[in-house]
């Protein structure tokens, strides 16, 4: 079938993964060459965006958090001990900043809950969760099956797989570590979340995903 190789650009180990390119970008930046970092910003911003959004940050605040994550990378460029771990560093930094944004937003909401028409029976809704993802935009039947199958997984599995899909497959372990989910079974590059998703997908019928 055509497209199989395209779908697996880096599993054969000959290509650099996003994690590798992030390490190179930092090393180059330290040496005064800013081009590679610019390329990394273009490539990894979607991954950071969805990392932040998964923490329940609204779109405007997430925009600021992603920018400040990149700024933090530049500010800490000299002190990041292990360039190899820079992708993980970015994800952890983005996630912490996202928590901070959520906390600030909650404090803000708390102050507003002192308004008289707020009561314990009608608590202010906290934007702790994303609005339900709108599967309406997915026109392809298999996309919708995939999306609804994903919703059947535990929340952290959903987050992990959404993020893993945006990076290169061998970066699975950096991303799992960054969001606090160890890889599970030794020697498995697939991980339990993907295995669970594949099981659910197989129950949906005999679709070819390649």
């Amino acid at each position: 079938m055509t497209g199989s190789r395209e779908a697996l650009p880096d599993v054969d180990g000959s290509g650099l993964t996003l994690g590798d390119r992030a390490a190179i970008a930092l090393t180059e930046y330290r040496a005064g060459n800013h081009q590679a970092l610019g390329d990394l910003v273009r490539e990894a911003t979607p991954l950071l965006w969805h990392t932040v959004r998964a923490q329940g940050v609204d779109r405007d605040a997430a925009d600021d958090v992603v920018q400040s994550t990149w700024v933090a990378l530049v500010r800490h460029a000299e002190s990041i001990a292990e360039p190899k771990a820079v992708l993980k560093w970015l994800l952890v930094t983005a996630k912490r900043a996202a928590w901070e944004a959520v906390r600030k937003h909650r404090d803000d909401e708390k102050r507003r809950t002192e308004l008289p028409d707020d009561s314990p029976e009608h608590p202010m809704a906290l934007p702790a969760n994303d609005p339900p993802p709108d599967a309406e935009v997915l026109r392809d039947e298999r996309d919708r099956i995939l999306w609804t199958s994903l919703q059947k997984l535990p929340g952290r599995c959903q987050e992990l797989l959404r993020l893993v899909s945006l990076a290169d497959r061998p970066d699975y372990r950096y991303i799992s570590a960054a969001i606090g989910m160890p890889m599970g079974s030794i020697g498995s590059t697939r991980g339990r979340c993907l295995a669970k998703l594949r099981t659910i997908l197989d129950e949906q019928g005999d679709f070819s995903w390649t």
Binding site: L8, V11, R169, S185, S188, L194, R198, W209, T210
Partner: peptide, 13 residues
């Protein structure tokens, strides 16, 4: 489930 990524895993992702 314990295996490496196969072609369909890649396509799903």
């Amino acid at each position: 489930p314990k295996g490496v990524l196969d072609a369909e895993d890649g396509a799903v992702l």
